[in-house]
């Protein structure tokens, strides 16, 4: 390292090359540090509740320790816990299955569209649901699926069927969850693929056409491989979401009737912690969920790095 005087004497161009600590840059990070400390790390201390025999009389600081008893209790004794875990995974998998493939299929179709006005219109339309909150969508769904005077049941009745109480039956509720979730997200999901599709070399299409490939063949042999890395990446990165079945959506739509098939970890954590004031148990479950999520996240990033050479950080 050169001394300050030396540096001052150096021509500007060379000075640029030798990197010095820029204290202003460091200062700019200070708000970030404060934010992380307060809103990301301070709450972690609250997790001790999960290991406590937490009582309101003693509070966080004086409650006695239970070690892993809260966890043991949940896993072995709590009635219906495993049903909730199963619900969570099943709903998340169903959503993943359809929610993952739908944008790919739609992107491939959009890619085939040559009329740019049509293409843009469709794109604009399919993005809309992404921007609407679940509070509002739940309102819309309730209204449309109303067994008495909802639009959907009106159509069903016109076609000679019997009205279905979609949101009140264990047979149909999950269907509503999956369809509405896919509907909300598929348009948004296409963006990433559409971007990737523009990167495919047009020469490949030309060559294929000369070889006599039809459109379907071109789609399968050129377009699809062209976006395969991004598909893989998306798939890998969606692994950690397996325990997130969608709190906002389910919370705004479900009711006691469908707890059996629709109660998931997040809604359960909320009800346990809030309605039953089981603060310790609720925190413990949240912790387990978060831990599993972290493991999956790290794993998926590792896989992403290995499989498609994608580095997140």
């Amino acid at each position: 390292m050169t001394s300050a005087e030396d540096r001052a004497l150096l021509p500007k161009k060379r000075r640029k090359k030798s990197v010095r600590t820029d204290y202003m840059l460091c200062a700019m990070l200070i708000p970030g540090f404060i934010y992380l400390a307060i809103f990301e790390f301070a709450p972690l201390f609250g997790l001790v509740i999960g290991f406590q025999n937490f009582k309101l009389s003693t509070g966080v600081f004086n409650s006695t320790w239970r070690g892993f008893d809260n966890f043991r209790y949940i896993f072995t004794m709590y009635p219906g816990f495993w049903n909730i875990v199963r619900n969570t995974v099943e709903i998340a998998l169903l959503k993943l299955c359809f929610g993952f493939t739908a944008p790919i299929v739609v992107s491939l179709m959009l890619h085939e569209v040559t009329h740019s006005g049509f293409k843009r219109t469709v794109q604009t339309l399919v993005y809309i649901p992404h921007f609407v909150s679940w509070v509002i969508l739940a309102g819309i769904l309730r209204s449309m699926l109303d067994p008495d005077n909802g639009l959907i049941n009106h159509v069903i009745k016109l076609l000679g069927g019997d009205p279905v109480y979609f949101l009140g039956s264990n047979n149909t509720f999950r269907g509503v969850l999956v369809v509405s979730d896919v509907w909300k997200g598929f348009g948004w999901g296409t963006i990433i693929y559409m971007a990737a599709l523009t990167g495919i070399d047009p020469a490949l299409y030309e060559a294929a056409t000369i070889d006599g490939a039809n459109r379907l063949q071109r789609a399968i042999h050129i377009t699809l491989p062209g976006i395969l890395p991004i598909i893989m990446l998306n798939l890998i990165l969606s692994i950690p979401g397996i325990l997130n079945a969608g709190f906002d959506q389910i919370f705004n739509l479900y009711n006691e009737r469908v707890y059996k098939t629709a109660d998931v970890l997040d809604t359960f954590i909320y009800r346990l912690g809030i309605l039953d004031s089981q603060y310790a148990l609720s925190t413990a479950i949240g912790m387990v969920k978060s831990a599993i999520g972290s493991v999956l996240l790290v794993a998926s990033y590792k896989i992403a790095e290995k499989a498609v050479g994608y580095k997140v950080f």
Binding site: G46, I269, S282, L297, V298
Partner: peptide, 14 residues
């Protein structure tokens, strides 16, 4: 921070 989370209750206390 991305890998951990305090959850609703600790966040509220903060």
């Amino acid at each position: 921070a991305m890998l951990t989370g305090g959850g609703l209750i600790p966040m509220y206390l903060v």
